[in-house]
Simulated assay, not measured.
Amino acid sequence: MEIIVDRAKCTGLGICESLAPSVFEVDDNGELVVLAESVSGADLDDVEAAVAGCPTEALRLRA
């Protein structure tokens, strides 16, 4: 699954980072850094939780 980030919606709150720290990181400037372009296996559940938990709906997954 490919991770799609709508940068216009992302506010860098870090909820995704807390739910999937091996995939998402908010840098010192408050910008979201995606550490993996696609996910599968063990990380997928965490990333799905991060997508569902994003309050600005800035994240989505594409098959």
Rank of each mutant, 00 (worst) to 15 (best):
M1Y: 06
M1R: 11
I3V: 05
I3F: 01
I4S: 09
V5Q: 10
V5M: 11
V5T: 14
R7A: 08
A8T: 02
T11R: 12
T11W: 10
T11I: 10
G12F: 08
L13P: 02
G14P: 06
G14I: 01
G14T: 02
G14D: 10
C16N: 03
C16G: 03
C16H: 05
C16S: 05
E17D: 02
E17G: 04
S18I: 07
L19E: 03
A20D: 14
P21V: 01
S22T: 15
V23E: 06
F24K: 05
F24D: 00
E25R: 14
V26M: 13
D27I: 06
D28Q: 11
N29Y: 14
N29L: 14
G30I: 00
L32Y: 08
V33H: 05
V34I: 10
L35I: 04
L35R: 15
L35W: 13
A36C: 08
A36P: 11
S38D: 04
V39L: 05
V39M: 08
S40C: 08
S40P: 00
S40M: 03
G41L: 03
G41A: 04
A42V: 13
A42N: 11
L44W: 02
D45Q: 15
D46F: 07
D46P: 08
E48H: 02
E48D: 08
E48V: 03
A50Y: 01
A50E: 01
G53F: 04
C54M: 11
C54S: 07
C54H: 03
C54R: 03
T56E: 10
E57W: 08
E57G: 11
A58T: 03
L59F: 08
L59K: 01
L59M: 06
R60H: 02
R60P: 00
R60C: 04
R62Y: 01
R62P: 00
A63S: 09
